[in-house]
């Protein structure tokens, strides 16, 4: 087993040693994650009520979404979570170049996810699949329902995508810092970033079946 990087310079006030700092950062991140669960939870409550009341609308909406593309997006995020684990591992072992490399890989996968998302948005907007501003202008109940479904779709995937964007920015910043390499980043911070990134993954794991897989069979 390789040695844990436990240099005293990694420890920041007011902590006493690396284990202490790690435990605090981990707890802090999990408190943050609990908070995010409720933040996204609101959207899933909305989704659940909407689907319970209008199962047909959700099914029809789900059929308008691109399942193969979304499957690729899911795989992309899962693999990026794996590369993030390796980035955290490199940081814990004090392997600076490994850290920079795996962070870069994670960031690129995230950008690929965002590119697919952008393509998907573009496609739906071009097809007129947008939340309609005025329902009374909708010519039929079906059209009105579809507008509502796409309201749900854009809001749920949009808030997720915003979280991805935030993650990409921090990952890029950390990757650059590691590549320049004047000072090794604190691995407790990389661990925190990793927790955040996996959380973004977890949210998508629920968004994916909720929206994309609702319309088939």
């Amino acid at each position: 087993m390789a040695e844990l990087h436990a240099d005293a310079r990694l420890v920041r006030e007011p902590f006493t040693d690396v284990a202490h700092q790690r435990a605090a950062v981990s707890l802090g991140m999990w408190v943050f994650i609990a908070q995010e669960v409720l933040f996204f939870g609101v959207l899933f409550v909305w989704y659940g009520l909407f689907r319970a009341q209008h199962p047909d609308v959700v099914a029809a909406g789900g059929r308008a979404l691109d399942v193969p593309l979304a499957t690729v997006m899911t795989v992309t995020l899962l693999v990026s979570s794996f590369t993030m684990v390796l980035a955290v591992r490199s940081a814990m072992l004090g392997a600076r170049r490994g850290l920079a490399g795996w962070l870069a890989a994670t960031g690129l996968l995230a950008v690929a996810f965002l590119a697919m998302k952008a393509w998907e948005y573009h496609h739906h907007i071009a097809a007129g699949e947008v939340p309609v501003v005025d329902l009374h202008a909708a010519s039929s109940v079906v059209e009105a329902g579809r507008a509502q479904f796409f309201g749900l779709y854009f809001v749920m995937t949009g808030f997720h995508a915003l979280h991805v964007v935030g993650g990409v920015l921090v990952i890029a910043w950390r990757a650059l810092a590691a590549a320049r390499g004047r000072e090794l980043p604190r691995w407790t911070a990389i661990m925190g970033l990793g927790l955040y990134w996996h959380l973004v993954d977890v949210v998508w794991l629920f968004v994916f079946p909720a929206l994309y897989l609702a319309g088939h069979a």
């Binding site: 939340p131 329902l135 329902g145 507008a147 509502q148 309201g151 809001v155």
Partner: peptide
């Protein structure tokens, strides 16, 4: 801003 139909009955 855009009327997405979550809280206003006019939008469902």
């Amino acid at each position: 801003a855009v009327g997405i139909g979550i809280f206003d009955p006019a939008y469902g």
